[in-house]
Simulated scan of single mutants.
Amino acid sequence: MQDYMIAAGVPAAQGKEQAMPGIVVGVDGSPNSERALDWAMKQAVAVQAPLTVIAVHEVPKSYWGHIPVVGPADAGLLDSLRQAAEEMTERAASQLGDAAPATVTVRALNGFVVEELVNASHDADLVVVGARGGSGFGRLLGGSVSSEVIQHSICPVVIVPHER
């Protein structure tokens, strides 16, 4: 398992075996997020943990309230994002053969990527992200989402690197 980095962590209590309530993976359709999903899927199988796949349709932020601004056009975009995330998840699951995570849930949300992943970290034992996303802005900053998630996540974060 040298194909990943643990970037932030909360140590488990020594001497206690703990059940893993869940793994969260962020996807955006990029090859790096596919690698992250594949890794998260295999890890969920290995520890028999539920897997939650999160895809976020990034929307503008309100100047006054710093809350997501969602318009009528966002509904169709969110449906397309959900469908793409479900197809991506089905492809990853099909590569596992008979093995399967305890459960797999796909969530598509309007909002802010980092905020949604950090919020999900409150109820997860592990958050998995790719080293860089699919947006041009994400490539420009060289992994700004993963950097932010590392800094603010409540649970350990695994960053799956891009293919070499």
Rank of each mutant, 00 (worst) to 15 (best):
G29S: 07
V47M: 14
H152T: 08
S121N: 00
L81V: 03
L96S: 09
A55W: 00
Q2T: 12
V27W: 08
G22I: 05
R132E: 12
A99Q: 10
V53S: 01
M5R: 14
T89G: 03
V113K: 04
K61F: 12
V128P: 00
L78G: 05
L109D: 00
V113R: 05
V10L: 15
T52V: 04
D38A: 08
L77R: 14
S135H: 06
V27M: 10
S80I: 02
E163Y: 14
M20E: 08
V59H: 00
P50N: 09
F112V: 10
V113L: 01
V24E: 08
P31M: 11
P161C: 07
L141E: 12
A108D: 06
H162K: 15
S80H: 09
V157E: 05
A108L: 07
V114W: 02
R91T: 05
V45T: 02
I67E: 04
A124C: 06
I6Q: 02
R139W: 10
V158P: 01
V158E: 02
E148K: 15
P11I: 07
A46R: 15
E90C: 02
T103L: 04
V157G: 05
E115C: 01
Y4V: 11
P60K: 06
P161N: 09
I23T: 03
V113A: 12
E148W: 12
G71W: 03
D98T: 01
L140R: 05
M1Y: 13
N110S: 06
V127P: 02
A49H: 03
D79Q: 12
L37G: 01
G9R: 14
S147Y: 11
V128W: 05
P50S: 11
G22L: 02
V145H: 07
E163W: 14
L140Q: 00
D79H: 09
L109G: 01
P156C: 12
L81R: 02
I150R: 15
S147V: 12
W64L: 14
D28Q: 03
V47Y: 15
Q48E: 11
L77E: 13
V129Y: 04
M1V: 13
